[in-house]
Design a binder for these strands. Sequence first.
DNA 1: GCTTGAATCGCATGATCATGCGATTGATGG
DNA 2: CCATCAATCGCATGATCATGCGATTCAAGC
Lengths: 217, 217
Amino acid sequence: MPDTSISVAVVEDNSELRDGLAQLIQGTPGYKCVGAFSSCEQLLGQLKSLKTHPPKVVLMDIGLPGISGIEGVQRVKAQLPGTDVLMLTVFEDEKKIYDSICAGASGYLLKKTPPAKILEAIQEINDGGAPMTATIARKVLSVFQSNPPPASVDYQLSEREREVLAGLVRGFSYKMIADQCSISIDTVRSHIRHIYEKLQVNSKAQAITLAMKNRLV
Amino acid sequence: MPDTSISVAVVEDNSELRDGLAQLIQGTPGYKCVGAFSSCEQLLGQLKSLKTHPPKVVLMDIGLPGISGIEGVQRVKAQLPGTDVLMLTVFEDEKKIYDSICAGASGYLLKKTPPAKILEAIQEINDGGAPMTATIARKVLSVFQSNPPPASVDYQLSEREREVLAGLVRGFSYKMIADQCSISIDTVRSHIRHIYEKLQVNSKAQAITLAMKNRLV
DNA sequence: GCTTGAATCGCATGATCATGCGATTGATGG
DNA sequence: CCATCAATCGCATGATCATGCGATTCAAGC
């Protein structure tokens, strides 16, 4: 009978927590702890031997001495692309969340998460999910919303209009744009009218936001 | 004793499902159904009367006749920025997921989700979370990883200041920001002064451009 | 107790913007 | 030749913004 349990490695510098996690995993049917390390360096040093039977999931503390958890994710993913990494942290630091996810983490939990939930999250990650705390999930979505994937609509702006729009984005007043383009301020107004029509907005702020989102300039 | 239940509106063209959801919500303590509509047009038509007591959460079917659920999200969010929208759909169509989220949805569930889970999701959204199915969550993260947001400098903005800045980015006037934050327009001015100082700019346009470049909102 | 700083509010004024309703020119294509 | 359209320019007016100079309140830290 093949071993169908989920193999997990733990990287955590606090020995108490590390042993706790290892025992939790090892002691639960369906889970198997294939390594408990106190630093990324240790884990990475064992990668050769792990490569024959790589862990499915790595629990990675984010605040590690030496190589940080964030850099650790990148390295692990580089060596073991099929392994998913679940970050563990004390704080919901927005920047660390982003960095971890961009580095390739598949989930993000707080250390205070009860053991049962941690096991659930490991299972979920193994099933292709992405366990996150509620607020983290929401933050991820909000970045998504301001970072739309290359939908790049063509707004059919003329060259002049793009030039004027670029001026707005750079914070120039109508007068400054007029000078820079060597046209009158009323012509600038006219161009801006047309830009607003084409972008379907009615304020400088909306035009700038749309221009930045869609990389129009 | 104040009414602390979560007010929910339902938009779903299938009358059976619509009524089922409405009864589920209305019949559960802690939840309150403030409207059940068969189309976005109906919901949007009622917005005026809803504005005094806007629903906390809108359950929105994605495949609606007329205005689609995706367009519906945008319109609802434009009118009621404080209301969260939970999308309901039959299929896990990748494009629809992205579009919904980019349009401003705060969660995404399949219609086959059991009633108890739907109620949980409503609660979660109300608590600032972002309920999603596991595969959707993973897809969102993978897009994130291929589209890393640029590292943002820390401008030490307070929470309020970020909120106001977000309003500017969305094209709101001072008055609209004041209403949304429930503060006076002069306070908005005051916050904007401080934002300009911290960002070292002196116009709305520059502030918006900087905010977008550095993903401050 | 005192200071400091963030968040709130008020008023006034000049600058800038949004938009309505015009007009002229010059290039392009039927 | 004429229609069309983008680019240019003009004026007027109400809305919105930028900024100066205030003030109060409340929580945190010394």
